[in-house]
Amino acid sequence: MSLDPEAVRRIARLARLRVDDGQVAQIQGELNGILGWIDQLNEVDVEGVEPLTGGALMAMRLRDDVVTDGDQAEAVLANAPDRDGPFYTVPKVVE
């Protein structure tokens, strides 16, 4: 499978990465190079193989329902690039 310029723009948009028109061709070349190389997996027969999802082969532990966290608005907000009092801020969102 290989990507056309429109697909490159669509992926960049999904990933929220600004891509200028001048960059599209180069990115397209690099991504197609990698995808072409990955295509070697087509050789592998995976008929009937259960996918391996994670690195740990256990069932999930469940934690108790107690409040152990919070009450730290300053620590939560301290790194914000822009804030207003107790809020994070972003450019106005229109729904």
Partner: peptide, 23 residues
Amino acid sequence: DGVRYGARSDGHDLTALYENTRA
């Protein structure tokens, strides 16, 4: 994404802010 921590590049709207920050 430039909202809660880290570097932010401004944008005219939220999507532009995300795209610029991350680019």
